[in-house]
Design a binder for these strands. Sequence first.
DNA 1: AGAAAACTTTTCCTATAAGACAAAAGTGGT
DNA 2: ACCACTTTTGTCTTATAGGAAAAGTTTTCT
Lengths: 217, 217
Amino acid sequence: MDDLRTEHGSVNGPTLGTKVRALRKAQGNTLAEVSEATGLSISALSKIENDQVSPTFANLMRLAEGLQISLGDLVTLKEDEGNVSARMTFSRKSDTVFRSTPKYDMYALCSELRRKRMTPLIERVKADEPSPLDGMVSHSGEEFFFVLNGAIEVHTEHYSPVRLDKGDSAYLDSTMAHTLVALDGKDADILMVWLGPSPVGQEDGASMAEAILNQDC
Amino acid sequence: MDDLRTEHGSVNGPTLGTKVRALRKAQGNTLAEVSEATGLSISALSKIENDQVSPTFANLMRLAEGLQISLGDLVTLKEDEGNVSARMTFSRKSDTVFRSTPKYDMYALCSELRRKRMTPLIERVKADEPSPLDGMVSHSGEEFFFVLNGAIEVHTEHYSPVRLDKGDSAYLDSTMAHTLVALDGKDADILMVWLGPSPVGQEDGASMAEAILNQDC
DNA sequence: AGAAAACTTTTCCTATAAGACAAAAGTGGT
DNA sequence: ACCACTTTTGTCTTATAGGAAAAGTTTTCT
C-alpha cells in the first residue's frame, strides 16, 4: 500500500501521520523513544507517520498517551499546531480597548496568536454602576480572575457574593450566572482568563471569545 | 478473540463498543442502517459494538460520520461530565508556597476547585539565578503569563528572548522549550495560567498539573 | 397462543491489512 | 570516510473487514 491520505485525511487538513510526526518532533523525540512510551514498534510508528497504515483504535490510544495528547485532540485533525507559524506571542501593557460597555472596558491580550485555547483579557470594572444584578450573565466555559487593582465583588446565582481585593483570585464555572461589581467607589482592574467549552475548536475559539465578549457585559 | 475491554476501555468508563451501540440505539437505527451510512459491513459493526475488534482509524472516521458525532467525541470515552459539587472557588492573596525551587517559588491559586481545566499559579522568578538556559523545559499544553512585578525575559528555543515588564503578558505553546529569567537583579512575580493538553481529563488535569510543576523548575 | 414470516444480530470463513522483528537505507557529526 | 543514530523497507505473524449462513428477536396472521 502506498498512501492513505485520501482515506483518512480531512479534505485540506493535515493527515494523522503528519500530525503525529509534528507532535513527536515538537517534543524532540525519536521513533525509538515514542516506541518506548507507547509500546508500539518503531516500524509501526514509521508507517503511521507516513500514512501507510490506518492504526487501530487500541493503538491510537497508546499513541495518544505516549504523545501526551488527549485522544480527542489526536484524532481531530486540526490544523498545524505543533509546527509552524506562531507558537508564542506577547503583549505590551495593553492600551487598546477591545470592547467597551457601561460596565466594563476590555483589553485583549496576546490576540495576535490565533491558535490558542485560552483567552486572556484585562477588564476594568467601572465603579459607577447602577444595580449589580443587572449584568448577570452565564455562558459556556470556565473563567479565572485575578484582581490587579481595586476591589471587586463576585456575584453568582449559587453563592453569596465574595469580596476580592488586590491579589485575590477566583475561578468559576461560567455557566453559572455571574457578574462583577467594583467596590469602594473606584474602578477595579482584573486579569481574566477564559477557557471555552470546545476543547479542540480553534477557529471557533475565536468566535466563542467574540460571543463571550459580546455577552458578558 | 473475546474481549478487548482492557485494551481500549478506560478503567471504569464505557468501552468504545458500548458507546457506539448506545449512539446507534439512541438514534433508533439498526446495524444495517449504520452499515449503509458508514460503508462498514454489518458484521464489522457488530464486532465493534461487542468490543471484539479494535477498528482502524479510517473506519473510526467513517463510523463517526455515520453516527453523526465528531471523531473527537466518539473516541473520547468521557463519563458524564455534567455533575457538580463545587462550581466556584476563590483564593486570598496567596501565601502558601506550593512548590519551591532554586529558580521559582510557586503559589497555587484556587486549588480547592478540583474540576477545573486551567491551572492558575503565581510564580516568583528569583533574581539570583546562574545560567538562564539551564532551566529550559518543554511540556504539554499552553501557558499564559502576566507580569505582576519586576521584569522577566522569556527564553524559548525558537524565538529571540523577549523582555516583559510589569503589565506585559505572553502566551506560548509549552511544548516549545522555554524558561524565564528575572531581570534587573530583582525577583519578578508573574501570574501564570497553564492549560493542559487533555481537554476532558478531569482528574488527570490534577496529575498533569503536578507533572508540570515538578518539571517546570 | 402458536407458528410462520420478517427482521436483527451474531458467528464462521476467507481475504486483506496492520503490527513486530530484523535488515537496509538514510542522516548527521567527528 | 567512518561511526552512531534515526528512519524506512521487507518478511512473517496476527488481527481486522467483508460476505454469507446461522442464531436470535420481534411482528403478524390465523
